[in-house]
Amino acid sequence: MTLPFVKMHAHGDDFIIIDRRGQDNPITAQVVARLGKRRSGIGFNQLAVVLDCEDAAARIEFWNCDGTPLATCGSATRGVADRLMHEAGIDTVVVRTDRGLLTCARVDGQQVSVDMGAPSLGWAAVPLAEAMDTLVLPMDGNPAACSMGNPHCTFFVDDIAAIDVAAMGPALETHPLFPARTNVHFVQVLSRGRIRLRIWERGGAVPLGSGSCCCGAVVNGIRRGLLDDSVEVECDGGAVTVQWDGQGAVILTGRVEPIMQGTAYLS
Score class of each variant (00 low, 15 high):
201 E>F: 04
212 S>G: 14
12 G>E: 05
151 P>H: 03
120 S>A: 15
21 R>D: 07
119 P>I: 00
243 Q>D: 15
178 F>A: 09
246 G>C: 01
52 D>I: 02
91 D>I: 03
131 A>V: 00
230 S>F: 03
57 A>E: 12
53 C>W: 01
172 L>W: 10
35 L>P: 08
25 N>E: 14
183 N>F: 01
9 H>P: 11
141 G>Y: 12
130 E>I: 00
264 A>H: 01
243 Q>P: 02
15 F>C: 03
75 S>G: 10
120 S>Q: 15
264 A>P: 04
197 L>Q: 06
27 I>E: 04
55 D>R: 11
96 R>I: 00
47 L>R: 01
225 G>S: 01
143 P>S: 04
251 I>R: 14
177 L>R: 11
176 P>L: 13
185 H>D: 15
206 V>Q: 11
42 I>L: 12
28 T>W: 05
65 C>A: 15
102 L>M: 09
243 Q>E: 15
223 R>H: 07
234 E>R: 14
222 I>S: 00
249 A>Y: 02
230 S>R: 14
147 S>G: 08
70 L>Q: 15
128 L>N: 06
172 L>G: 10
181 R>A: 13
136 V>C: 07
35 L>K: 02
2 T>S: 15
179 P>H: 13
208 L>P: 00
84 L>H: 08
250 V>M: 07
181 R>E: 12
17 I>G: 05
189 V>P: 05
